[in-house]
Design a protein around this nucleic acid. Structure first.
Lengths: 145, 145
DNA sequence: GCTCATAGTTAGGTAGCCTAACATTTTCGA
DNA sequence: TCGAAAATGTTAGGCTACCTAACTATGAGC
């Protein structure tokens, strides 16, 4: 990596980190009204796709398995998920959405999407196109990490 | 807002929220090695620009004033910031960086920038340009919220 | 079959956040 | 100008989410 490239990459990295931080504050302000926390939303999002193990929930949330167990038990007590033994491996536990959980997730997700959409509405069409193009690139970053 | 526009905006909003969530996990994995937490980094970043009040730290971090006081006192005990009365308003307290605090912030910031830069290095030039163009747009979102 | 690795839970402790109550200073209207 | 209300922080007490360590139970391999 040449020196001039390095400087440009570092500058972009810094901007990226700063913007990400600001976006997190924005995101947090949208979460702060509701019943479901960001972590709960994430957990339900994963389970909405397909039942998954406790260890995968922990890995995806970036927390340890005991912490994930704790949170999942709370979701279970709230009637939003079920914990059932994995038929293919009796050690494992599969977390899956209940109907109530799916409804709660969809409602919460819709509310948040509507708020973000209201912000996006204030952008120009060009800006939205640029933003849309950037999202898969950010996902790529995540994937190569 | 027309219905078709609404659907497109909602779809973009959902992608945006998902990508943001993933980016947060990425960011968190980079923070998890060091001595300074994300919140501490943010606080030092603000104070690095200019001394600021406890209430502004709280507002920028999205936490309450007592919580900010708590964190700032810890930073003070670590010798990274000073708390001094605002000369223009005796109720207020100005948080400012010590030399040690500035050095710690710069070092931590550099480490994180280098890691992100290494990821950016793996992107193509076009992707980097798109990403760079999107950052100010995301900031705009934040500003209009 | 014995050993070791894997999946989760339980137990106990820490840190960060909250609200409520308080002290101090500033602002502003009667 | 003086007293009430607002603004700025701090203190006190409690809650929640996270952690590590220790444990149970199941699967995998020599």
């Amino acid at each position: 990596m040449s020196l001039s490239t390095d400087v440009r990459l570092l500058a972009l990295a810094q901007s990226f980190r700063t913007t990400l931080r600001h976006a997190v504050y924005l995101s947090r302000s949208m979460d702060s009204d509701g019943e479901l926390t960001t972590m709960q939303m994430s957990t339900l999002s994963m389970a909405a796709e397909e039942p998954l193990r406790v260890s995968r929930v922990a890995a995806n949330l970036g927390i340890r398995v005991p912490s994930a167990t704790e949170q999942i038990i709370k979701l279970e007590q709230a009637g939003l998920v079920l914990r059932q033994p994995d038929p293919t491996d009796s050690r494992a536990v599969l977390v899956q959405l209940t109907d109530k959980g799916r409804a709660a997730w969809e409602a919460a997700s819709r509310r948040r999407n509507e708020r973000v959409a209201a912000l996006l509405h204030q952008l120009g069409e060009d800006d939205r196109a640029t933003l849309a193009a950037a999202l898969p690139i950010i996902e790529k970053l995540n994937h190569t990490a």
